[in-house]
Design a protein around this nucleic acid. Structure first.
Length: 467
DNA sequence: TCAGCTACCACGTTTGAACTGG
DNA sequence: ACCAGTTCAAACGTGGTAGCTG
């Protein structure tokens, strides 16, 4: 286990509270470990697939981490985002994943904010931190703040730990970014690998109804024509007695390795062994064939990547209140314009999340606040009035142009206490001086004082060009 | 024709309000 | 009146599948 040690201070004048003891913010020896690594590994060996749906789908396994080495009394914000593993689109062909071409232009980048954020280090360390409610979607116009992904593309989650009292101070803070190789996955709209399906069914409590020992036997079937034919023949019988204990023995070959055991450690172990025998892990194959992966050679799978993420310094908060929520988002000519093809370059420069931004008057933006951008001034994502979605806009630092949209999503509701978010307070840093007029409108402050982080809607958090 | 996507379905889990008893 | 435990229904989360679409 190795955390990211190569930290750099952020740019720009730090807030007073940070300047008072900068070392204290740097001395932490943060360690982050992934929970259920064996489960993740089981999926990873098969080629993890995550369903993405229009309304949003949770991950399974979901991201759950343990933290250590935080300063107990210091506040931290935990974030998760998804980054493409490579610049390819994949297809499932003959029981294995194959490259099907270049990746599509990256969807709007969003970051999931852990609902407990910000919380003191002691809070994060006292128990494991779960990102259970993180949802994935393929709807680029998603209004719920879910993380937007492309189907048939590979991603891996990144965990960001930011020492910050609130979102106001995020921009001055140092990010520590952690990634686990075994959490990489392929986003799909329907499962391709039946072994993954089986693994999910056996481990996800919500899918108990699909287990062999469950009551709903007729759901256990495969898509093979032979099975479909047999299923058709059996349908009447099944309809007559769908609660029969012993399932029909057709179409069970794909699950043979899992039969006959109740849930528990032993069956799981058996599953893993059975899977290994038929294992075809496409990612393992990639490694064998020299296809690029993010795994550091020789590194323990539980070790994090040695990457770092800094908050761009000349950050420019550009929250704009949406007064007519519900207006359809305006298409952006810049969407996809930065897509540069395959490989890392394809997502080094992310496009702003303008696809989700309802129409608003971009003339309100001041050029110097937005900063230079090859695509011209970006209409910043406007806050939306659904609860829990944050929006932060930051310009790139010199040499890393491009204002990116990076959405922060938190499942906070308006009623939840967010005092530390909603109001910087007199002892905290004042809002950035370059905030737009809209930012300081009473309406916005009203929202903050009521703990509604919706006004933060979509904040471009940081640039992918940094990694 | 077909791969990918979506809507809908049935089932199980979770959650919170309502109810009950001490 | 208060609190803790129980019950129950609605909401939510699943994978399967038929049908649609490009």
């Amino acid at each position: 286990m190795q955390s990211i040690r190569d930290l750099k201070p952020n740019f720009g004048p730090p807030p007073q509270s940070m300047a008072a003891g900068p070392d204290a913010y740097m001395q932490g020896n943060i360690r982050l470990t992934l929970e259920d690594p064996d489960l993740w590994k089981s999926f990873h060996d098969l080629g993890t697939e995550m369903i993405i749906t229009k309304p949003g789908r949770r991950m399974f396994p979901h991201c759950k981490i343990n933290l250590a080495g935080l300063i107990p009394c210091a506040k931290y914000i935990l974030l998760v985002d998804m980054v493409p593993v490579d610049g390819f689109r994949y297809k499932w062909n003959k029981e294995k994943w194959e490259v099907a071409g270049k990746a599509e232009p990256q969807p709007p980048c969003r970051t999931y904010l852990h609902p407990d954020s910000p919380a003191p280090g002691s809070h994060w360390m006292k128990q494991s931190v779960s990102f259970l409610k993180l949802k994935l979607t393929n709807n680029t116009l998603d209004q719920h703040g879910h993380i937007i992904l492309h189907s048939m593309h590979r991603y891996h989650p990144r965990f960001h730990i930011v020492q910050a009292d609130d979102l106001f101070s995020v921009r001055w803070s140092v990010f520590q970014t952690f990634t686990f190789p075994e959490t990489s996955f392929t986003a799909v709209t329907a499962y391709q690998n039946t072994s993954i399906t089986k693994l999910k069914i056996d481990h996800n409590p919500f899918a108990k109804g699909f287990r062999d020992e469950g009551t709903n036997k007729k759901r256990r079937s495969s898509k093979s024509p032979a099975c479909l034919e047999k299923r058709a023949k059996m349908s009447d019988m099944l309809n007559r007695d769908s609660k029969e204990d012993s399932p029909p023995d057709f179409c069970r070959s794909a699950y043979e390795a899992y039969d006959g055991e109740e849930e528990g450690d032993m069956p799981k172990r058996k599953e893993a062994e059975g899977i290994k025998q038929e294992r075809y892990s496409p990612w393992a194959a990639e490694r064998e064939h020299g296809v690029r992966t993010e795994s550091p050679p020789g590194a323990d799978h539980r070790d994090v990547y040695n990457t770092e993420q800094l908050v761009p310094a000349p950050a420019s908060y550009q929250p704009q209140r949406v007064h007519d929520f519900g207006k359809p988002p305006s298409p952006s000519p810049s969407v996809g314009s930065s897509h540069s093809g395959s490989g890392r370059s394809s997502f080094e420069s992310r496009v702003p999340d303008v696809a989700t931004v309802p129409d608003h008057d971009t003339s309100k933006l001041r050029a110097h606040e937005v900063g230079p951008h090859p695509c011209g001034p970006q209409p910043l994502p406007a806050p939306q009035d659904y609860p829990g979605v944050l929006n932060m806009s930051m310009a790139h630092q010199a040499g890393k142009p491009g204002v990116i949209g990076h959405h922060l999503y938190s499942p906070y509701g308006p009623e939840q206490p967010l005092g530390q978010w909603s109001n910087p307070g007199p002892t905290q840093y004042p809002p950035p001086h370059h905030l737009t007029a809209d930012y300081t409108t009473p309406a916005v402050h009203h929202g903050y004082h009521h703990g509604n982080v919706a006004e933060w809607s979509q904040y471009p958090l940081f640039s992918y060009s940094c990694w």
